[in-house]
Amino acid sequence: MKTMNNNAIQIKNLVVEFPSQKGVVRALDGLNLTVKQGQVFGFLGPNGAGKTTTMHVLLGFIKAISGVARIFDEDVLHSIARQRIGYLPEHPDTYRFLTGRELLIMAGNLFLIRRKQLKHRVDELLKLVGLTDTADRRITTYSRGMMQRIGLAQSLVNDPDLVILDEPTSGFDPLGRISIRHIITSLRDRGKTVFFSSHELSEVELICDHIGIIADGRMIADGTVEDLVKPDENLERYFLRVLS
């Protein structure tokens, strides 16, 4: 029987393996993770720890060999679960032959947003990410930071309840990082859930309600920054201490 809860993300004993030349590599090894609705969750870990793999399972790109992964109480493999998600990949590669505006319209059409409403939403998003003036230029002419911005805009086109961001501040200059921080906090203020990975620990410390640290496919720390980090250390020191 299905029980309702207020979890945006629920992962239990998740195991993911990939074939490799040396045999089978276990990318996630019994991962457990819960993200409550309305939280800004910082997902941290060294390179190769399993952050992106976890996100890919949540988005249904890959299937786990065992365990449970649910979004808003729906199995992640149901496309209905993705109706309420926005996703920004680490490298927001996209159709470079489209203009920024066309990309957002295409993304909105995939969510079956009505034309009039979509036009309004696209203008709003272009303004939010600061691309109004370059919206009708082809994406192939965009800089890396602009690519990241249009990627972020397309991830928000459906006004998602859960935003999954993989390294959202990579490719941004300091001003761009500040604007991303503002966007994330404004999402939180509107009751949205944000699940993001980052290597920028100072950013995470500033905006996250909750953090989780993953290493070798397992969660090794999970809690609020206040609960985990001692008064005489910062998140960076804590991160190094936990990993060592």
Binding site: H56, L59, G60, F61, S79, I80, R82, Q83, I85, G86, Y87, L88, P89, H91, P92, D93, T94, Y95, A107, L110, F111, G151, Q154, S155, I164
Partner: peptide, 14 residues
Amino acid sequence: TQRTIFPLLAKPIS
């Protein structure tokens, strides 16, 4: 190869 499949599959499209 161009990794455009990821944002696409993240949408509610089968």
